[in-house]
């Protein structure tokens, strides 16, 4: 498996180098475009694929809720602070 990957990686590097050696690549040729991009970098490939949801443990969910409450409470405190500042309170 490792050898196969190394072989493929070398082939891909050769393809890219061949294009890089050209003073002006013909980007009207789709194969030239594809040779310069990674498989999951092409817009069509990204449009039709999504990463799946990851499972959130109870601990992580509790942390996310805690941070959400933190933000909400802090926003209220900001509001208090600004109202005081605008009304010139000490």
């Amino acid at each position: 498996m490792k050898e196969e990957e190394t072989k493929r990686w070398k082939q891909e590097a050769e393809i890219e180098q061949a294009v890089a050696a050209e003073a002006r690549p013909d980007l009207r040729d789709p194969n030239v475009v594809l040779s310069l991009l990674e498989a999951d970098q092409v817009v069509a490939a990204k449009t039709h694929t999504r990463f799946g949801r990851r499972k959130l443990s109870a601990g992580i969910r509790a942390m996310l809720w805690g941070l959400r409450i933190y933000v909400f409470v802090m926003l209220v405190i900001v509001l208090i602070s600004v109202l005081r500042a605008l009304h010139g309170a000490p």
Binding site: R8, E12, N31, S35, L37, A39, D40, T49, R50, G52
Partner: peptide, 12 residues
């Protein structure tokens, strides 16, 4: 479809 990100070239 499931995203299968790799660093392989699109042409390959």
């Amino acid at each position: 479809e499931t995203a299968q990100l790799t660093t392989e070239s699109a042409v390959a």
